[in-house]
Design a protein around this nucleic acid. Structure first.
Lengths: 222, 222
DNA sequence: TTGACAAACGGACGCGAGTCCGCTACAATT
DNA sequence: AATTGTAGCGGACTCGCGTCCGTTTGTCAA
């Protein structure tokens, strides 16, 4: 469940570049410049206030070039998060490995994972929000939406929990993984944060409580 | 889906019409015509394949007129569901009243509510999806998004459950109501249905299981 | 070097949402 | 019936996204 990412090549995402001819020098330079410009503009004006034409212009390329490198605004945002996304992933994987060795229950690991994910989502909301928009287009390319590994991680931990007897044998891990992550979907999360005014801790605690409730399920039956 | 058409004070939503001068005859006729045309076009081509210009043209009005009546596509869709939304609401309220009288536990009522809501969401997905899009614009007018009463209902039942001792006293009903409804947010629901292939019953059961787990929480403590 | 052929470029274009504002015509008033 | 103020109308326009396609240019082979 790790590393479904694309590892050989750094920008995992480098749309093509899988072994066919290396890309042209100027093309690479353009892509790098676009990313830097986008990051700067986003930082200055906010993600939603910057449009693709501005990015292209500021980077000194045409829109065609911009879209040649990034299928849409969402993909551009995703790639801007790439490093941090990978770091986060690696950290969690490492942590979970050591937690498993220490015999920490899977559900507890999942609780910590969700807590960390809440923090991550909070920090990267603006970019994540854009990414979420065009899920469809993203699926068509070979890019992994963040949701995918989140799902795989949660699903994996739930399945392990079932195997370990922390959850009933007929527990629907696949659905539950989705249900637990649903409140973290960017539009939903944003609504809770900005409209309802829930703070980050409250959300984390809420999710934690659901997990607690699920684990008590098994205790009841036993 | 009949008759959300013109009737006098039709749409709780009727953007203005709160006691000021009655609207002009031709305006009412236009609005009614727009709604009929939209319904027909949506039925024929699917909601997402029909654009606002087409609706205006087919209804024989300008885009200005269309937008005078409906702030955006989402609002138009919302009003098309109006009758059914109200019926659903009324049914559930009535049902809950009788359930309460029969002493059925609040959490059980909530479980049934969620099950019904899953069915409702499934049926109205295409319209709900559009509605969800422009939450912001909707909030600014005095229109109730479907989410609002869903939330109030769930929240109310959870609070009653706490009062009835079915849940711990420090239970965060407000957050939990949101968390339970999150999987029903149109984009999330649609993803689960169409991409992951979960069927409606599976989703309903999953939500039901979470509720079951939550109720067992209290049993543990007691 | 030079030639040639993709890859890469760039900006005009199409599309759909939603806005704006000058014009129209309803209905209230005399 | 004529007058008039205003709600209502219509469609050109703006905006942002994303596409298309004729042109340029890096790279590689001769």
């Amino acid at each position: 469940m790790q590393n479904m990412i694309g590892d050989p090549i750094p920008l995992l995402h480098g749309v093509q570049s899988y072994s066919t001819a290396p890309e042209r020098r100027d093309a690479a330079a353009n892509r790098a410049r676009i990313l830097m410009v986008a990051e700067a503009l986003f930082a200055e004006h906010g993600v939603s206030a910057v449009n693709m034409a501005e990015i292209a212009e500021e980077a000194g390329v045409g829109k065609g070039t911009l879209y040649r490198n990034f299928a849409n605004k969402g993909e551009l945002c995703l790639i801007l998060m790439d490093t941090q996304l990978r770091e986060f992933q690696d950290q969690r994987l490492e942590l979970m490995r050591s937690q498993s060795e220490s015999g920490i229950p899977c559900l507890e690991q999942l609780a910590e994972f969700l807590e960390a994910l809440v923090a991550f989502t909070e920090v990267h909301m603006p970019l994540l929000f854009e990414v979420q928009q065009d899920t469809q287009a993203l699926n068509e390319r070979e890019i992994q939406r963040p949701h995918f590994w989140q799902y795989m991680t949660a699903y994996g931990l739930l399945r392990s929990a079932v195997r370990a007897g922390e959850l009933p044998a007929d527990f629907d891990s696949a659905y539950m993984a989705e249900a637990l992550l649903a409140p973290l979907a960017p539009p939903t999360f944003r609504f809770q944060r900005e409209v309802l005014g829930f703070d980050v801790d409250r959300i984390a605690e809420g999710l934690n409580l659901i997990l607690g409730a699920l684990s008590s399920l098994q205790r009841i039956i036993a």
